[in-house]
Amino acid sequence: MNVMCSAIQVALPTVGEAAVTGPLAAHVETCMPCKGEVLRYRTMYRELNDLDRARYRAPSGHAAAVMNGLGPVAVPMHESRMDHRVPVAAAAVVATAAAGTAVLFKLYRDHAA
């Protein structure tokens, strides 16, 4: 195994499905073991890709178990937003009232002085 063969060994798991390029590609053309290695990696990537379409059957009763474990109904988005609006509005009223009181108090003190 020469330096180029070692470089191929490092490159193939890195490039994935892409082809090796440049001097490495030229080397593969002339080296039978490397050509075989490229082919084996290519087959491996194709088989991994194919797994995406393979499905395995969930155990019987799986969907029923999911539905039994759902718990309370999910809160719809608009209700969730409404829930947040009330405390936010209340906080805004309190903050405005506090600021107004502070200003009035300062004016009263300035006036008294």
């Binding site: 194919d50 393979a54 059957r57």
Partner: peptide, 11 residues
């Protein structure tokens, strides 16, 4: 058990 025999067999 593959759920879709044709597809799983190809993998």
């Amino acid at each position: 058990d593959p759920v879709r025999a044709g597809e799983a067999a190809s993998a």
